[in-house]
Nucleic acid binder design. Structure first.
Lengths: 257, 257
DNA sequence: CGCCAACTTGATGGCTGTCAAGTCAGGTGG
DNA sequence: CCACCTGACTTGACAGCCATCAAGTTGGCG
């Protein structure tokens, strides 16, 4: 699960996805308010300038569009500047599974390094903006800047640990535990970005949540309803208000079983 | 799923776990027969000598002993020279889940980079031998040697892709598909090491297989029995003989549903 | 030889998937 | 402005798969 990081910006309550005014098209890492969450973490100003120089392209991706798709040649790592993505993989027979949801400050594309082709699809769940980081140049630079090298390794390792968390979730948790874990994880990540831990809007459908958690959409819906009856959360379509965070944590840790 | 790699050694049929004679205690990457599978892949002889210099410790781990445990400070990446390991994570309430099985030529410990503490336990499932690679020295060296840097990134990325594979397995496959995928994966990895694709000994219990696949041990046992009745495999305790690889592949791809 | 852990097999039950019918919210066009 | 349409969501009834519980078997080891 993601580590807590200091946030510089004042928390904006309950508007996690409001699109920031886009005056600064030439935005660079050095003045990006995500720099403490993203790749430049721990770099000096001088080092950050070198990283800025790599990022030639910043692109907007419209809701529903793909950033990359399975089989495409791998060339870039992508840093999410704003917005929300899902990654999913397809099986031969047409079934597919969501492997993750990514938000601002997180990296996309790490799956492509090993085969030099992407192994999953990355789809924007809302209008988003993404920094393109040419991977071979990132490797070059991280041979020069130790802090960058080390932080990049940490990010990859964090992805591995996150995946292990999902594996335990899928392997041994029941419906309510999975949903509780999912909501708490989102809450934590919104908090790290300066938003309310208790109130947010989901960007994904029940079906996408279910696909991620190994459940059917009806099961997700029923779990939300049950949590609402028990006073743990208030749900109104995609708007979530968590009323009892400790209660959700108890469910996740199975202290009630 | 792991990529196919060339193997230099002549295949030794059906003895994947026989312990090699241990004449060369001073074994180095340069004369290790796993070098094409392991970290030194793609390095020149000269570069490999530098990698050798990092590896001060080679340790034997007895069956059942831990290489590292959750919470211990992270210091080394470990390369398996011989033997077989499992990694598992524990939940607060005592439940635990196997997150992977590792064999010769694979790396252990990548989970520890992000927090500088290990986030899982690594336990030997048979007497094993492991090279200790000090991580900070590996980072230093991979700032010097581009090929090493790049291959290390590929290995981390491969781990992420592997985990995504397990997530799809846990999220949307039924019992028989999981077991078929598990057996085919082992078969593939043994093949890459020069062993028979069709015949091998499991090093793990039914319970450990079940834990990895999100199933109970009885369910694993029943699936093995069913495959045997159908003539797909022959099982005798931990000895597996795959009789019909295409048949298993069909089950995995759900062409029969 | 006897013990024990690992494994197999059977009977039963509960959880979650499946199928189906309806509700809600937002968007479009008349 | 409202009627309608559509996709997303909710809720109910039922079924099937896998977990659970239980009893027995096998093989390795002291």
């Amino acid at each position: 699960m993601p580590p807590k990081m200091a946030v510089k910006e004042a928390p904006a309550r309950d508007a996690p996805f409001s699109v920031a005014p886009f005056a600064v098209i030439k935005a660079a890492c050095s003045n990006c308010n995500l720099r403490e969450l993203c790749l430049p973490f721990g770099l000096s100003n001088d080092e950050m300038t070198h990283l800025d120089a790599l990022i030639s392209v910043r692109k907007r991706i419209k809701r529903g569009d793909s950033l990359y798709r399975v089989g495409e040649p791998f060339e870039y790592i992508y840093a999410i500047r704003s917005g929300f993505f899902k990654t999913d993989v397809l099986l031969e027979d047409g079934r597919d599974q969501v492997t993750g949801f990514q938000m601002a400050g997180e990296l996309l594309g790490l799956d492509g390094i090993c085969t030099e082709r992407h192994t999953c699809n990355a789809v924007a769940l809302e209008d988003s903006e993404v920094c393109h980081i040419p991977f071979f140049r990132l490797e070059n630079l991280s041979r020069e800047i130790q802090a960058l090298q080390h932080h990049f390794h940490k990010i990859m390792s964090r992805e591995i640990v996150r995946d292990h968390g999902v594996m335990t979730l899928l392997g041994m948790m029941c419906v309510e535990e999975r949903i509780a874990a999912f909501l708490l994880n989102l809450s934590q990540r919104f908090t790290a970005r300066g938003f309310s831990p208790a109130e947010f809007n989901l960007r994904m459908t029940r079906e996408e949540i279910g696909s991620y958690l190994g459940l059917k959409l009806e099961t997700v819906s029923r779990a939300f309803s049950r949590f609402q009856e028990e006073g743990l959360i208030a749900v109104q379509q995609r708007h979530i208000h968590i009323l009892d965070i400790p209660g959700l944590k108890e469910i996740m840790a199975r202290r009630n079983h």
